[in-house]
Amino acid sequence: MDILQIIGASMVLIGSLVLLIASIGLHRMPDAYNRIQVGTKASTMSVVFVMIGFIFILPSWFGKFFTIMLFVMLTNPISSNVLMRASHKKGEPLSSKTVIDNLKEDEEKEELNKNNENGTF
């Protein structure tokens, strides 16, 4: 039993280190898009590691830890997607390293088509 507890505790430690790296990444990345990439991935993975570690420590609470893990894996990408779609629409600036932006091109094309249709009248 002792060895299982130590394995579990080490997984919790790995999870907390992943969260620490995410926090450093939030400061190093140049724009909001890259920041949310690091933030979403690393924080989800941190929770997954922590919960798997706790399942090793306390197997009788399996259901609760597993539900929290699934819940975070399902909801975290959705919320960040909603946030970034709104921000892109409102013109959140991309960093100068960006090489291509298909979404903006397509939106401008759509806008142009709309204006042309209205202009014929």
């Binding site: 790296i21 190093r28 991935k41 991309l94 932006d101 397509d106």
Partner: peptide, 26 residues
């Protein structure tokens, strides 16, 4: 894929040169 993604993110964040070339593709 998820574990690979985290190793990828960690290596990018801790690399002093910050090797990124971002863009939005369709």
């Amino acid at each position: 894929a998820m574990i690979k993604s985290n190793i990828d993110v960690i290596s990018r964040v801790l690399n002093p040169k910050l090797p990124i070339k971002p863009g939005i593709v369709r």
